[in-house]
Design a protein around this nucleic acid. Structure first.
Lengths: 296, 296
DNA sequence: CATAGTTACGCGGTACGTAATTATG
DNA sequence: CATAATTACGTACCGCGTAACTATG
């Protein structure tokens, strides 16, 4: 009972036609016939009922098909993983994240390290002002960015995180005592300007230019990094919307994070430079896809 | 990448020694070396770190081992099932059960039919008085019996059901209104005698001869079948303990079933004549073992 | 230097193709 | 009778053994 025979069996179980099976596997029709009858002889059961006109699976064959399909998938998956680990062996995958998001991504990195033991994963920090640059310079292999990302040179992979948004305000700010915030509140305050390097549509998806009712939201002073933003907010001169994660592991002095109750949920997805595509990156994307997004 | 190579890889991963691996698989040591280095060349990763003195798995190898082991198990299991289905193909497995127990066993028979589509399963009825005879005459292949069964010619397989016990009493009986019964109550009543064909130890495990406190339990008139027992009980002259299943699908006129609160749980196991052992029976036992016992 | 893994090379079995044969709508 | 599965038979490749070689404690 060899692996090739199993492949032939599975293909025939799908095609239910000796000729097409032979074609698909690039072997002669005779070979398919031989392989099947050999298996049936070995097992002592008919796997297919066939005349020279019609081929159908027997109940035993149907059951065997399910079992073998599953086994073969596992087998090929395992080999593919080992190969991918080989192609990326010794490599370090640099993963860019905002703030402490790396901690929330541990289920992903743990699963990835288990699957591809040869590959090392390291986190790098990114900021709203330069979220794409490290990808383009090659300093990072993959960044975890909020969607939508629509850059011609970047590929967007599976979503790895989903979560709400918060508004960072000064502790003295009138909103601070309300405990929650609305997008409408933004129009009454300045928000931090993330600078010219980040594309407008992308910044706007986190820091909108208008409230849902259409009022303009004034852009205040500029800042690039997370801490720069927070120190501006702490002065009380402006407020700033952020992902929920920002609030989770930070309790900066003089700052309060208010959940924004009317903002749509954010999606954070793996993103990489298209020309930088590699088995290693594909492996990470596949692992993330298998795992599904983590909800905050 | 062939199946034999995978087997060699897995064995070496276990033994961590080329010589012993070769011995176990009845091949030359050279073959093991060739197989491993070929796989490593194909995959492009080292699977083992080795000197001529020590062999250890690399992280990639460790991971691959887990994946392949699982896949191979599935594969062999599937083939074994097909083979078993073949050996028993066309056969009918006669399964003896008390009363309606067959209905509770549907998860088992469904699973069995799914795994071994070639084999038919039929139920036959058995009674306390002759629970073993159908096995010995060959009329039944397997019986579902309460434990303990200690017969030299019978094999006891996995437990398929567990559940409590009930006491069948006449609706006029003083106990009937209590809604529950104790083993001590038996001493104040006659119980049905199951006749000489059933071994004493086995009958006693369902119908004890003494109460927990040591009082003798009088044996009353004899009956063999379930319905004979019930008609005796209906007269009010005796009571009788039964498995919980008996109460589940029977509402015989003039009879009340009272849960016996202080009796230990009953275990019902597959039992067959040792000389009658066959792949088909093994297949059923394996399916039952995989499924685990059903709790009533 | 003994033990254990690797490399070189040759034989035999089998995977597979070609071509003829049989069966079915 | 056309289409599709099976059987017959030959060949080339590869799985595997034997034996010589190399490395390590």
């Amino acid at each position: 009972m060899e692996l090739r025979d199993i492949e032939i069996f599975l293909t025939l179980a799908e095609e239910l036609h000796f000729g097409r099976t032979a074609e698909r596997l690039h072997v002669s029709q005779a070979r398919v016939s031989q392989a099947i009858s050999r298996q049936e002889r070995r097992l002592g059961v008919a796997l297919f009922d066939r005349t020279s006109r019609r081929v159908t699976l027997t109940p035993v064959g149907r059951r065997l098909r399910e079992d073998l399909q599953q086994a073969l998938d596992l087998l090929q998956q395992g080999l593919a993983r080992a190969e991918a680990a080989g192609l990326g062996a010794g490599r370090t995958l640099r993963l860019g994240v905002f703030g402490h998001a790396g901690h929330e991504l541990r289920p992903l990195t743990d699963a990835f390290r288990a699957r591809y033991p040869g590959i090392d994963v390291k986190f790098g920090e990114i900021n709203g002002g330069d979220a794409f640059t490290a990808l383009r310079t090659g300093d990072h292999d993959v960044n975890v960015l909020w969607l939508p990302v629509a850059e011609p040179d970047l590929t967007v992979g599976p979503t790895v995180l989903t979560g709400g948004r918060v508004l960072a305000v000064s502790a003295d700010h009138p909103l601070a005592d309300r405990g929650t915030a609305s997008l409408e509140d933004l129009a009454d305050n300045h928000v931090v300007d993330l600078g010219p390097d980040a594309p407008d549509y992308w910044v706007a998806s986190m820091v909108p230019t208008r409230t849902p009712s259409g009022r303009r939201i004034p852009r205040g002073p500029a800042a690039r990094t997370f801490h720069e933003i927070l120190s501006l907010v702490a002065t009380g001169h402006c407020v700033h919307p952020l992902g929920e994660i920002a609030a989770r592991y930070n309790t900066p002095p003089g700052i309060v994070f208010l959940p924004i109750h009317d903002a749509p949920t954010l999606q954070w997805a793996l993103t990489w430079r298209s020309t930088n595509d590699s088995p290693t990156i594909r492996a990470l994307a596949q692992t993330a896809a298998d795992l599904g997004p983590i909800s905050l």
